[in-house]
Design a protein around this nucleic acid. Structure first.
Length: 422
RNA sequence: GUGGAUGUAGCUCACUAGGUUAGAGCGCCAGUUUGUGGCACUGGAGGUAGUGGGUUCGAACCCCAUCUUCCACCCCA
């Protein structure tokens, strides 16, 4: 075991790959149902894109980016999140002139230099959506609904909780921060060292500090929802009303503050009820496109952690994939080997999954193998079958439902497909 | 980045007053007399005990370093 995968990375293979593909296929279904189009952007972008958009006071930018200089002396960073790259692509390719709203989805890997824990990797995958061009609360609602549609398909609707909040616009947030600061000012000495720093750099983050003393002090803090300006307040009310009308259950949690600077108004997250994990986080970002030198464009989006979602599914045993094989062709001796292989190849051309032994196993071992691979049917080829030009197609689950067919790929494929449909 | 754990076959784990060729279950490969799987039985492959040093006549077991993974913070998907 000389070479190990880099810290914080993961190999995905065999059964786990099947689980991923299952989730991915559900994601594609949802994407189609919501009429979104897929976007793929580069794994790396110029460093400045992230420092500008994510915010240079955030932890992501301060200590978690994989940044390096390329051979041309450019500062490059492996994307720590996807929104910035999508927004860059939106502007660069003039997508603002496409019919609004532009609804983009992606499934891509992102990179953060973090200390490992379960559900926390240095390379991980996010399913995400960005809805660009709508300032309406309806867009917020749609962004909230999309993960829900996926959870429903995965049968974990009751296993996650939706938390929402509004952090207002720059104007009302600034007012709130003043209130919060004056509330905390007197007790600042008793707070943890992190919070003392946050007090000056990013006061909102104090809200979700987990230190006991800080929590105590925060008990009677002012809530941002009480300080929203009229527009922001109305917007938030409309979001809630619409969610209610759709029977979407949610908690209003005035303590959720996202770790990226570009959010405003609605922020939301989906949290596992059983594991201590945030599976999905998102919100509105009306100023980001402009900040990245694009046309003024309101937008909302979210990112959903694939590794965490799959971790949750595994924990709930909701993602068990039974691998299936349509036909296993066995042969009695080396004499029938070539006929068997040709038959397999021919049947495969009809879209069925077919396996033949390529290890030189005995007939009996081939049968065992067919069983292990969970083959629906087996076909045994021997001298008799070849001379009579007829084969027995054995149903591996129920011997009584076995049947015969001509030794012909077309006939066999049609017969198996017909039986499968029943 | 801070604090605390962990590491023995592909997987889940045994073996400690430090002492001959490190074990089990599952998995993998094969066989149980020659044309039919799932059970059972038998056999086989597979580990320089994460890696590198040190202590010792002798280390998987003791010490140090390092890496990995995990837990609590931090943060977040």
């Amino acid at each position: 075991m000389k070479y190990l995968k880099p810290k914080g990375t993961k190999d995905i293979y065999l059964e786990e790959m099947a689980k991923w593909q299952n989730v991915e296929s559900k994601i594609r279904e949802v994407a189609k149902e919501y009429n979104m189009s897929e976007i793929r952007t580069p794994v790396f972008e110029s460093t400045e894109l992230f420092t500008r958009s994510v915010g240079d006071e955030t932890d992501i930018v301060n200590k978690e980016m994989y940044t390096f200089e390329d051979r041309g002396g450019r500062s490059i960073t492996l994307r720590p999140e996807n929104t910035a790259g999508v927004v860059r692509a939106y502007i660069e390719n003039g997508m603002s002139s496409a019919p609004s709203p532009v609804k983009l989805w992606y499934l891509s890997n992102v990179y953060r230099y973090e200390k490992m824990q379960k559900g926390r990797y240095r390379e991980f995958n996010q399913f995400g959506v960005e809805i660009l061009g709508s300032a309406s609360y309806m867009a917020d609602v749609e962004a909230i609904l999309i993960p829900l549609a996926l959870f429903k398909k995965l049968d974990i609707l009751d296993e996650v909780t939706l938390n929402i909040n509004s952090i207002g616009c720059t104007a009302c947030r600034a007012k709130y921060i003043e209130k919060l600061k004056s509330f905390l000012k007197d007790n600042l000495d008793e707070m943890c060292s992190d919070c003392k720093v946050r007090f000056y750099k990013n006061p909102l983050r104090i809200i979700d500090c987990k230190q006991k003393k800080c929590k105590e002090i925060l008990q009677n803090k002012p809530n941002i929802t009480d300080y929203l300006c009229e527009d922001c307040s109305n917007h938030f009310e409309k979001v809630k009303e619409t969610l209610d009308s759709l029977n979407v259950k949610y908690n209003i949690n005035p303590d959720i503050v996202r770790g990226l600077d570009y959010y405003n108004r609605t922020v939301f997250e989906y949290v596992s009820n059983t594991l201590d994990l945030t599976v999905c986080g998102g919100g509105r970002y009306d100023t980001l496109v402009e900040l990245c030198q694009g046309p003024k464009t309101p937008a909302v989006g979210f990112g959903l952690g694939m590794e965490r979602l799959i971790l949750l599914l595994d924990d709930l045993e909701k993602n068990k994939i039974q691998k299936e094989l349509d036909i296993y062709i066995t042969y009695l001796s080396e004499k029938e080997e070539k006929t068997a292989y040709k038959l397999a190849t021919d049947i495969r051309a009809y879209g069925l999954s077919v396996e033949v032994d390529i290890l030189g196993r005995s007939f009996k071992a081939q049968m065992k193998q067919a069983d292990k691979l969970n083959a629906a049917y087996t076909i045994a080829l021997g001298e008799d079958e070849i001379s009579n030009n007829i084969v027995n197609i054995k149903n591996m689950q129920n011997k009584e439902e076995s049947f015969t067919a001509d030794l012909d790929a077309n006939v066999i494929a049609k017969a198996v497909k017909a039986v499968n449909k029943k």
